Amino acid sequence: MQDNRCVLRIGPDLMFFTGYQPQNSREEFCDDVPNAGQVVVALDMQETELREMLTEIRIIRDDGTHTRMNGLPFLTDAELASPEVLEPVTITYLPPKKYPTGTLTFEHTFPVKGKFIGIVTVENQHGQKYVSQFPFAVGVPLGKSLALYGLLIAGLLGVVYGLWNYGRKPRSPASPEKPA
C-alpha cells in the first residue's frame, strides 16, 4: 500500500491496481479475492515510461511446485520462460500490448476457490523485461482468518498473564517485632 492505494512494483516503476467483485459488492481489495466468481482488475500505469511498454498479464494456478521465497511461491526466470511450465497452469492470459492511456482493465471468473499467482511483464523497446509476481488466494474463508487472529490474541494474552503472574512476588509473612 502507498497513499492508501495498492501498489505493484515492476522494475524501477510502480503500477497502482485494485480488484473488486461487482456481483458481491463494490468494495475494493488489494490481495486475496474474497469469493470465487467474477473479478474485475484495474491497473493504472502512473509512469509515462510504462505506457510506452508492452504489458502482458498472466494468472496461473499455484500448484505448489514452485520455488518459495519468504514462504511465498515464486517462479524462477527459467519457469517464466518455459511454455511447458506456464501453459498447463495458465487460467487467463492477456498478450503483450501497449496501453497508451495508462489504464488496463480485465475481468476473470474464478469458478473455484484456490491459490494463484499473478504475473505482470512489461518490455521496453530495447527488449528489456521487468516481471512482477504476486501470489493470492481466492475464497479464503473469513473464519480461517478470524481463527488465526484469535489464536494470536490468545497467545498474546497468555504471555501478558504469564509475565504479570511471574512478576508478582509472594509476600512473606511479617516477622513479629521483638520486644525491646
Score class of each variant (00 low, 15 high):
residue 122 V to F: 03
residue 49 E to T: 15
residue 106 F to L: 09
residue 69 M to E: 02
residue 73 P to F: 10
residue 142 L to F: 15
residue 67 T to L: 07
residue 50 L to D: 03
residue 101 T to S: 10
residue 66 H to L: 10
residue 39 V to E: 00
residue 80 L to G: 03
residue 101 T to M: 11
residue 114 G to T: 00
residue 98 K to A: 06
residue 127 G to M: 10
residue 121 T to Y: 04
residue 53 M to H: 11
residue 65 T to V: 07
residue 58 R to P: 00
residue 93 Y to S: 11
residue 50 L to W: 03
residue 55 T to Q: 08
residue 137 A to F: 02
residue 120 V to Q: 00
residue 68 R to A: 09
residue 52 E to Y: 11
residue 102 G to Y: 07
residue 155 G to Q: 11
residue 54 L to F: 14
residue 96 P to K: 12
residue 61 R to Y: 07
residue 87 E to R: 07
residue 72 L to E: 12
residue 64 G to N: 10
residue 72 L to T: 07
residue 139 G to A: 08
residue 78 A to D: 03
residue 118 G to L: 05
residue 141 P to W: 07
residue 88 P to D: 05
residue 106 F to V: 04
residue 47 E to V: 01
residue 104 L to A: 06
residue 65 T to G: 13
residue 134 F to V: 03
residue 51 R to Q: 06
residue 50 L to M: 12
residue 119 I to L: 09
residue 96 P to S: 10
residue 40 V to E: 05
residue 136 F to P: 00
residue 73 P to M: 12
residue 144 K to L: 13
residue 83 P to D: 11
residue 77 D to R: 15
residue 74 F to L: 09
residue 45 M to E: 08
residue 82 S to K: 04
residue 38 Q to G: 05
residue 145 S to L: 13
residue 106 F to D: 04
residue 139 G to K: 05
residue 138 V to Q: 02
residue 100 P to F: 06
residue 99 Y to G: 01
residue 116 F to S: 00
